[in-house]
Design a protein around this nucleic acid. Sequence first.
DNA 1: GATGAATGAGTGTTCATTCAT
DNA 2: TATGAATGAACACTCATTCAT
Lengths: 202, 202, 202, 202
Amino acid sequence: MNTKDRILDVSLSMFSISGYEAVSIRDICGAVGIKESSLYYHFRNKQDILDSLMHKYENHISSLLHILQSASDPKEGEPSLDWLNIYFFDQYLFDPFCNRMMRLMLIEQFHNERIREAYERWLFVEPYQIQASVFAMLAKIGLVPEADATRMGHDFFATSTMLTFKYLLNGDLTQERKDAFRKEAHAYMELLFAQLGGNRNV
Amino acid sequence: MNTKDRILDVSLSMFSISGYEAVSIRDICGAVGIKESSLYYHFRNKQDILDSLMHKYENHISSLLHILQSASDPKEGEPSLDWLNIYFFDQYLFDPFCNRMMRLMLIEQFHNERIREAYERWLFVEPYQIQASVFAMLAKIGLVPEADATRMGHDFFATSTMLTFKYLLNGDLTQERKDAFRKEAHAYMELLFAQLGGNRNV
Amino acid sequence: MNTKDRILDVSLSMFSISGYEAVSIRDICGAVGIKESSLYYHFRNKQDILDSLMHKYENHISSLLHILQSASDPKEGEPSLDWLNIYFFDQYLFDPFCNRMMRLMLIEQFHNERIREAYERWLFVEPYQIQASVFAMLAKIGLVPEADATRMGHDFFATSTMLTFKYLLNGDLTQERKDAFRKEAHAYMELLFAQLGGNRNV
Amino acid sequence: MNTKDRILDVSLSMFSISGYEAVSIRDICGAVGIKESSLYYHFRNKQDILDSLMHKYENHISSLLHILQSASDPKEGEPSLDWLNIYFFDQYLFDPFCNRMMRLMLIEQFHNERIREAYERWLFVEPYQIQASVFAMLAKIGLVPEADATRMGHDFFATSTMLTFKYLLNGDLTQERKDAFRKEAHAYMELLFAQLGGNRNV
DNA sequence: GATGAATGAGTGTTCATTCAT
DNA sequence: TATGAATGAACACTCATTCAT
């Protein structure tokens, strides 16, 4: 990893825990192992680091969404818990970069308008829309009764949001927390699909 | 309001938006209208302001819980939407002091162990236990089937937590956000109790 | 002298020699004998020191002009070399504060518009107008032929300006330079009035 | 123009306005369009740029003096306003390089001994000697009475020095300022020679 | 000729805090 | 209760400069 990326990496780790203001350029450079003046070769100023992180996150997310979009295509039949585990949990919610960025947006939501909008968008608006389109798709392919799709989507959104804040954006992201999150999420999914009766590979 | 309380008030307003580190003694004193040196007559240091806020919040909450406990006593029959509106929404979630304190704990959750514990406790642990005891009570008085009490409690907790983070701890606490919260919460309650059939004054 | 005035005094000494940019807050505070942070109790920032000096100079000059105006009133007969020595030389051109301020304006004429205007005004515009009014007065009281007043004023202005730049705003303001200035100025005055013939107390 | 000359050109422009200290290597390289490290291929350090400028100026001046010396030789009869316009005004006082160098020496007169000496020499000593020799020559060829030569020389020096500081080393060197300078200088020359009576091509 | 990457020293400025009054 | 004056430590940042490529 080059110096610029190491600065970004270290900055994100620190910002996502202590907040932007509480982390000094000294702190970052000390952890990266460079002199303070060297940082300014790579970034115009402290704010530029934060902006670069936001930029990187937005790129990351949009490429992730592209993968998700094709992966969620129910060509192989139907969504499975594997899909949830691999794409949604491991590659997004549990992913260190994404997780730290969510924490950063959470605690720095008032830092500037860009972060506010990103926080609102990626923690609430987009997740809501994604579940809506997923459950609409499930209804279309007959896996979920049309009449229940909206309600089930709401519940799913509420539960995954609550679990995210409770386990993934609260304290250290330990294996215990990931496991607890996964366990409760899976239990909820079982319950959800149990309501539908029938046998399927959730 | 005396100087000490004005300092606390102003500090909370600022801390809950910008975070502890980003707010300086200068900022606080400027807003209160006193010189920086005067602040040290009322507080030992900056941390002491934060500690006092936490102390005040804990007192506030415990007196609120006492009221709630007696008020939620189903002597008058059963819980109603009035109860939810008055005690839970207006006096807790929407209350400026409580709301700001929740924001403060949210964005300063890593500041020290006390705040971490309070955040964990008041945003996740206690709300979960309260709903659990409420739904247990509802089951005991026959309003809710024993078999459904746990699941309904879970769902209620997930929904109210999600709505809290989405509407009340995200951006300014405007009337629009309060209304949106109330509307969605009530709609959810209707749905929840509709599952039970029967007529009641929820 | 209080701290604020000592800061101004030291700053002027340094600014007028090395220029604003070349003098650091560290330099100033070192010479004054205070810590750098203490300076910011008295001045908002470095620029504020320069602004205060300009403000002080403008006040000083205008009060000086008031005195000059009444002093130059030819009630006692006519202007004399004493008047020139006391009011114009000693209290203005040779005065350490005024002299340093002129140097400062000279070398910092491009620093900002305020200094540019002051430089233009106090080194060229006002001196020209003052000599014009003085020679007009001399003509009115018959000391100088009407026909020669304008030309003599021009010459006087040219000579005193040249001498000022050559001796008083060039290198250290030593006694030698002051003496050289006074000598040449007096010689010029003798010459000037010699042209008029007659006997007078110049 | 090669890179080295472009650096000198840009540096002089900036130094003569803001002063040596206020102009950074960054500023210069930004304006030239090279990276900071590249500058050190052409100059040993920042001071070396200033030294090169002084060196260039001294060369320029001495070659100018050679031309002047032969040109001022009254072989063609006598000095004319053309001579003044072409050699003294256009090629010296108004010349962008010379003008900027004079400003630089003016505002950086305390930077080091070399600049102090150059300032003293080229703004006061040499101009005084040149006029002295010119008027001596004029006296020798009978254009000016022996008795008046010294006084006229003094006056001429005073006026041209004053006009230089007032119009050419004060603010931007606009066409207006050049015109004002030329107009006043010519008017003064007319006056000076008018005193001598007779007819000549000044 | 020019540059990418780095650095030690220094810049102006703000920080929370102290203390005599 | 409140403030004027001060301070050590830290702040983000810029400086001129170096050196391998």
